[in-house]
Computed example of a mutant assay.
Amino acid sequence: MAGVDLARLARRRYTEPGHPTPIERLDRLSAALGGPTIYVKRDDLLMGLAGGGNKVRKLEFLVAEALAQGADTLITTGAVQSNHCRLTLAAAVREGMRCRLILEERIPGSYDPGASGNNFLYQLLGAERIRVVPAGSDLVAEMEAEAADVAAAGRKAYVIPGGGSNAVGATGYVACAQELLYQAFEMGLRIDAIVCASGSAGTQAGLLAGLHGHHADIPVIGISVRSSRAEQEARVWELANRTAEHVGLRGEIPRERVVCLDDYVGPGYSIPTPGMVEAVRMVARTEAILLDPVYTGKAMAGLIDLVRRGRFSGSDHVLFLHTGGSPALFAYTGVFRGA
């Protein structure tokens, strides 16, 4: 299959070559909703690093660049239950590097040093330093300050943006687009739409760039977990084009290809919604698949609502990209008690 040549780019493998994450048909969920046939791309099974998830794909390219630059410390940022922070720290451990985390307390009072979920894993994996900053802090400046402190100690830091979402990190999802197109070809599967969570934008942007590079006109519907539709679509489009340029594609990705729905954010990032609770429970009880409460739970809530509203026909094949994050469930157990 012709497409983007990624072989020229440095890559640190945390996944086993030749073993794509599976695409599974969700018959029981599809029957429960009475709409299109739903499939899932199981990127929650990218288990090369602690707990797995979509950031593993991004870190393969980011850490390769860090090592090429001679870095011995990774610095990144995220929310207090950030899957990205967990996996960046795990990559650092794998490489014998140190790691510092800047956690943004997006909901006042939400940081608990004794919490379970990813917060516990930061400590178990041995982060060199964890600093918690208020919502709205200048995270770039905070990471630069950490990098300066590392330099003052005679070491070299590599700064990774939140979610690993720059052109280097999003390249991981250009690779994913290639992978899923090949799988669909081998399965004889027509994919009519892809639905994914859209947060720091790297996953959706990389998918769009990869599909564009393969001339695959599959709609990608991003379900925003934080930002307004206008803000998120602008972010995704800008990053998709930077990523396309990074991997050597020519021509701009059409603006109309970028769709981010903001109907399912609820009161705010990481704050539970009834739709999210229903979605997590439904998928667990029909397919024995665990979603997370911040990203995939809200993205699945969006897919369920779109099905109920008739967005798809009964003959459509819709692919849900499961980006992982289930460790965060254990910090939200109270939300699901008795569900």
Score class of each variant (00 low, 15 high):
139 L>Y: 04
140 V>D: 15
140 V>H: 09
140 V>W: 14
141 A>Y: 10
142 E>T: 07
143 M>Q: 13
143 M>N: 10
143 M>C: 14
143 M>H: 03
144 E>V: 02
144 E>L: 04
145 A>S: 08
145 A>H: 04
146 E>Q: 13
146 E>H: 04
146 E>M: 05
148 A>D: 15
148 A>P: 03
150 V>T: 13
150 V>S: 11
154 G>P: 02
154 G>T: 04
155 R>K: 14
155 R>Y: 06
156 K>S: 05
157 A>R: 00
158 Y>D: 00
159 V>Y: 00
160 I>A: 04
160 I>Q: 02
160 I>N: 03
160 I>E: 03
163 G>E: 02
163 G>D: 05
163 G>S: 05
163 G>N: 08
163 G>R: 03
164 G>P: 03
165 S>C: 03
165 S>T: 03
166 N>A: 06
167 A>F: 07
167 A>T: 03
167 A>D: 15
167 A>N: 15
168 V>H: 14
168 V>G: 13
168 V>R: 12
168 V>T: 15
169 G>C: 09
170 A>P: 09
170 A>E: 11
170 A>T: 08
171 T>P: 08
171 T>M: 11
171 T>Y: 08
173 Y>L: 08
174 V>D: 15
174 V>I: 13
175 A>W: 01
175 A>Y: 01
176 C>I: 02
176 C>Y: 03
176 C>F: 13
177 A>C: 12
177 A>M: 11
178 Q>F: 01
179 E>Q: 14
179 E>K: 06
179 E>H: 09
180 L>D: 09
180 L>K: 06
180 L>T: 09
181 L>H: 09
182 Y>E: 12
182 Y>L: 12
182 Y>W: 07
183 Q>K: 06
183 Q>V: 04
183 Q>R: 06
184 A>P: 04
185 F>T: 10
186 E>Y: 05
186 E>Q: 14
